[in-house]
């Protein structure tokens, strides 16, 4: 959640079920988010996993991080 707030400080992520359709993240934010997740977790996210549905809420983001070898414990 800290990463998301860092990218879009003005967005209310806690009260959203879908960051994309609620307009909290746009395509450029996804690029920023992928870059931040890669450096934070020391992973490379597969290009084919960079789909809006994989970044639409905190649970989906956690899943994609784990799928690409990240440890979110």
């Amino acid at each position: 959640m800290n990463i998301l707030v860092g990218i879009r400080p003005e967005s209310d992520f806690k009260n959203s079920q879908d960051f994309i359709s609620d307009g909290l993240l746009d395509s450029f934010d996804l690029v920023a988010l992928v870059s931040e997740l890669e450096s934070t977790y020391g992973i490379l996210i597969d290009a084919l996993d960079i789909l809006p549905e994989n970044f639409c809420n905190a649970e989906a983001i956690a899943k994609v991080v784990v799928k690409n070898g990240g440890n979110i414990e």
Binding site: S27, A47, L48, I50, L51, P52
Partner: peptide, 11 residues
């Protein structure tokens, strides 16, 4: 359609 083009290129 940026997202479609991105996925197309990577695929």
């Amino acid at each position: 359609q940026g997202a479609d083009v991105f996925t197309f290129v990577q695929t």
